[in-house]
Design a protein around this nucleic acid. Structure first.
Length: 243
DNA sequence: AACTACCACAACCGCAAGCTT
DNA sequence: AAAGCTTGCGGTTGTGGTAGT
């Protein structure tokens, strides 16, 4: 149809930007004709949303952004637009690219290092239970299952923390460390008696591993902040409890 | 210097959902 | 209710740059 394809020239960008600044982008199909561009509406929309929009953040992804993508991808799967909605200034296309080029490999490498550790254990002790090994994390201080710390927050003691602490820096994002999100994610309605003897209904109970944010002094508050921030970004999670 | 392989990013394509007529 | 149109999404491909041989 005589329409141009391929990379956009700076002149085309200029035309598109100034047209949208003046008239907005009500109808993408009609836009290129009105703006005098030899592009299809779809191509214009993509160029604008992925590259020319003024609120787009440029530059490399920070460690924090990468961690957020990994976490949200675990929760949401390949729903790039949903992930992008939680990362201001980043586009779904950009996130999809960074996932395929960097993060997937990063996870794979981590996974294979875990596998080789398991192999090493088996070679040292051929009698070890490989079924158990498959489900275990061999890094020190890493919980093997979120359900291991399913106790009420108030009852978590220092000794139990030793077992349930996950170091933030060493966070393993493979499926065994993240709970499946469904209706049973929060267990509802437990009552407890306060110091004044009155009964308080607590709506939810945590079933997460505790996260140690720094040093040996693990604090429950830090842990709660971590999970809270994670799920606040993943807006379509179940209702959040009061921390 | 020329060629090849690989990587990162931009852009395209097809499909599905939502909207309008 | 149905058909046509528009938009958004996710998978895939294309392109340009760079490192290695």
């Amino acid at each position: 149809m005589g329409l141009k394809k391929g990379p956009w020239s700076p002149e085309e960008d200029q035309i598109l930007v100034s047209y949208i600044r003046q008239h907005g982008h009500g109808n993408w199909r009609a836009l290129p004709k009105q703006a005098g561009l030899l592009r299809c509406g779809k191509s214009c929309r993509l160029r604008w949303t992925n590259y020319l929009r003024p609120d787009i953040k440029r530059g490399n992804f920070t460690k924090q952004e990468e961690d957020t993508i990994i976490s949200l991808h675990h929760l949401l799967g390949n729903r790039w637009s949903a992930i992008a909605a939680r990362l201001p200034g980043r586009t779904d296309n950009e996130i999809k690219n960074v996932w395929h080029t960097h993060l997937k490999k990063k996870l794979k490498n981590h996974q294979s290092s875990q596998d080789s550790k398991r192999q090493a254990v088996v070679s040292i002790n051929p009698k070890c239970d490989t079924k158990v090994l498959e489900n275990s994390n061999l890094d020190k201080n890493v919980v093997t299952s979120p359900q291991e710390c399913s106790s009420e927050m108030s009852s978590i003691t220092d000794s139990s923390l030793e077992k349930t602490v996950v170091k933030y820096e060493e966070m393993d994002y493979s499926s065994e460390y993240f709970p499946q999100i469904d209706e049973s994610f929060w267990s509802e309605e437990l009552s407890r008696e306060d110091t004044d003897g009155q009964t308080t209904d607590e709506k939810f109970q945590f079933q997460f591993p505790v996260v140690e944010s720094a040093g040996k002094d693990s604090r429950i508050d830090d842990s709660m902040d971590f999970w809270y921030n994670l799920f606040i970004r993943a807006g379509d999670m179940p209702d959040l409890p009061e921390f």
